[in-house]
Design a protein around this nucleic acid. Structure first.
Lengths: 223, 223
DNA sequence: CAAGAAGCGGATAGACAGTATCCGCTTCCC
DNA sequence: GGGAAGCGGATACTGTCTATCCGCTTCTTG
């Protein structure tokens, strides 16, 4: 790792920096966060060296791009809270944030993997959690969302639907909405029958931990 | 690639073959299908050479192991169809097949990726599809499952819940049942309000194609 | 407009992971 | 007892990604 100067760049250099960020944004959205810095450089039409001179590694590019994205998700949450109809707010938040994930594969990865990104992004992520909580709590208090629903459930719903999205992005990019709707029908409080849930929800902390990437494998021997 | 003799093995060799299959079964269940043949050999307590002498590649091991697994899923589907209560059959099939996926990570991967496995496994997979269809159709005809539900929806539900399972296997291996229950509450026909679904379901063929693994990336240049 | 500073490109070194082979030695079985 | 069958695992290969280096180009400023 080298680079990351801080004082103002030469004009052409600044332009290339912008190109790199734009290319990264594009590629992250289309292919997810595991594109390489080399990929990004080529997509931006600059040499690999330029990319590494400007960003020490992918983390920094991610941080430079996704703080804003997460802020947008947070803004959507605020908007949901501002809706006088608690149910509409709840449903709208899920819809919008999933749509954002549909349009940006990288966003899903950032949301699902706390390992990615540095402080800026992590801060933004932390700002988001209590908003989701408020949206859920308000809907429960208003009696429109089943009372055994927990704010961590909202996270796992997104995990579940993001998986569907991932499979169908090429064929029917909006198919996830179908299952979101079925799911919403299952959590609305004004239903005739709501089954007792067989398993308690996870705590916020457990949820956070469960989002961590696969733990490394351990193979023992013996037949 | 070498190996794959067909005529009866020496006694010790046959024993090692069994050890290898047992080890593979173990590892596939715990870690998924991307363990290597080397991993499997070590876990079986035999040398790598032995593994490659017996199986040309991982595909063959997979084929040797998963035909039976898929047959078990099919058996569960049969059992579901045998249940006089169409709803219970439907719910039971989802529960059981998800539980099987919970206990065997490799099974999820086989079901979700038609690329994996060879003819034996593919055959078994094809045998499964019409059973799922019958389960769904019967429940719809009985008026217990919402009429806009399609058999392909059952597949995507499993994709969705398998994703949750994957995140929580380490923390609360049964959490997916919570969301399955919410989901079931959303597709049961005896509800006060069922929303109109915003998106049509995929055809069987589209569904199959959507399960294929990520298409390779294409990076163009230009800023 | 000259010259030094800043920036550039991209071949390539290095790290790592997975696949598969080879061959000297061991075990089985008639 | 001897030859066929089997074994182990070091190792060569391949592919992927990360990151650097250095000769050349472009900007900038006096």
């Amino acid at each position: 790792m080298t680079s990351v100067k801080s004082r103002s760049l030469r004009k052409d250099a600044e332009l290339n920096r912008q190109r790199l960020l734009a290319a990264a944004d594009d590629l992250f959205a289309k292919y997810g966060l595991d594109v390489t810095l080399n990929d990004i450089a080529h997509h931006a039409g600059v040499g690999v060296g330029t990319a590494y001179r400007r960003f020490a590694n992918k983390q920094q590019v991610i941080d430079a791009l996704f703080e804003q994205r997460l802020d947008e998700v947070a803004a959507t949450a605020d908007e949901a809270l501002a809706d006088p109809d608690a149910w509409r707010g709840f449903a709208m938040f899920l819809e919008r944030s999933l749509q954002m994930q549909m349009e940006d594969r990288g966003l899903t990865e950032i949301l699902n993997n706390p390992q990615l990104g540095q402080h800026r992004v992590n801060e933004a992520r932390d700002r988001l959690a209590p908003l989701v909580s408020s949206i859920v709590d308000r809907a429960k208090e208003a009696g429109v969302l089943r009372s055994d629903f927990d704010s961590t459930d909202a996270i796992f719903i997104q995990v579940a639907l993001a998986a569907v999205m991932d499979k169908t992005r090429g064929i029917s990019p909006v198919l996830y909405r179908r299952y979101l709707m079925m799911f919403l029908d299952g959590v609305r409080a004004d239903k005739a029958t709501l089954s007792e849930l067989p398993v308690p929800s996870l705590s916020v902390d457990q949820t956070h931990r469960s989002m961590a990437p696969d733990q490394p494998r351990r193979f023992d021997s013996s037949p």
